[in-house]
Computed example of a mutant assay.
Amino acid sequence: MEPQEITPCSKPHPPVVGKVTHHSIELHWDLEKAARRQGPQEQWFRFSIEEEDPRVHSYGIIYAGYATQHVVEGLEPRTLHRFRLKVTSPSGEFEYSPVVSVSTTGEPISSDYFHRAVNMNDEDLLLRIFQGGHVKVDVPNKFGFTALMVAAQKGYTRLVKILVSNGTDVNLKNGSGKDSLMLACYAGHLDVVKYLRRHGASWEARDLGGCTALHWAADGGHCGVVEWMIKDGCEVDAVDTGLGWTPLMRVSAVSGNQRVASLLIEAGADVNMKDKDGKTPLMVAVLNDHEELVQLLLDRGADASVKNEFGKGVLEMARVFDRQNVVSLLEERKKKQLPKKSSIR
């Protein structure tokens, strides 16, 4: 028995308008005919969405196929668009629907405009933006930073307070896993650090490498921030997930800052803790040629006799990497620690 030909029996309904934004319009259509699909695709109804070009008052196809919805994108805000649906039967007959008119919405406050106010430390503009409403306070900029992250990093305390009072999430993280507290700690903005702590920021948070805010504060070298963090109860010997480094090891590797190292050691940082390769802070300081920090670590109880997992000690490392000043320091210290030979009478 020959399959019965299906033809458009009546004028189709116009496309139904779904979600509309300032740059897109969602359309869907004729689910009834789509539900009657049987057999191979060539026996299905085919749909086309056509849009009017207002300059020449003619229609052009913007979608053709067998789907029942389409999103028109890349539109301008507050612009009127006119669409019609063309339904074509398997035999090639077709009908047009009535035209539907729909306008895109007004453009919301641009995230670029919002971030520009923060970057410029423009408190009045930021307040006006919030008064205007419809602000996505946590929308990131092109670098993945929220407005709070930017304000915290730059030390704009008043903007930080405005953003927090307008509902920003203090614990959001950027692409590398750093939150606003870490950024403020690294940059040394103590007022911002204190404010974020009062409003829910946590010392326990870690970035993608497992580093805490104290790791970043140690990198930044701001003693006032490090000292306050320790008093506020952050963990001194937190270990990252990459190399297994504590904040003291970061100091030994990056800056060699003796004052920061002293604060950490006085707060209980372990001068002989080993990383994943068996290196101690002393070894890391030797490898990075931080001579004065090497002296400090030795004075604070660092064990120069410890070997790493390859059986290498600090003196051997210093020689291999030609750290001449450190070699002299270690050899001199070793001589002083040798027991004096008693004279034979």
Rank of each mutant, 00 (worst) to 15 (best):
R206F: 01
W245N: 10
A147K: 02
G224A: 06
S10H: 12
L330A: 01
E292N: 11
V254W: 09
D30Y: 01
E316Q: 15
K340Y: 12
F130D: 02
D179C: 04
A238G: 06
D122K: 02
L190G: 00
E95H: 14
M182H: 04
V87M: 12
N325D: 15
N257T: 10
A318D: 06
H57D: 06
N308C: 04
W29K: 11
L27T: 06
H222Y: 05
K178I: 00
N166D: 06
P77F: 05
L159H: 02
M249F: 08
Q258V: 10
S48M: 06
N325F: 14
L148D: 09
T146N: 05
G210K: 07
E2P: 11
F145G: 05
M273W: 12
A253Q: 15
L208P: 15
F45W: 00
G233E: 07
C211T: 05
K341I: 14
N166G: 09
G155A: 01
D138Y: 10
S176T: 09
S24F: 01
S305H: 11
F130I: 01
M149Q: 07
V137Q: 11
S111K: 07
H70K: 15
K312D: 11
P108I: 04
S58N: 10
P8K: 12
D30S: 03
R323W: 04
C211Q: 13
G233K: 06
V225D: 03
V192H: 02
H222I: 03
E76G: 15
I6K: 15
I265R: 11
A152I: 01
V225T: 04
L183C: 01
H23V: 00
G92M: 02
V56E: 14
L214I: 09
V254E: 13
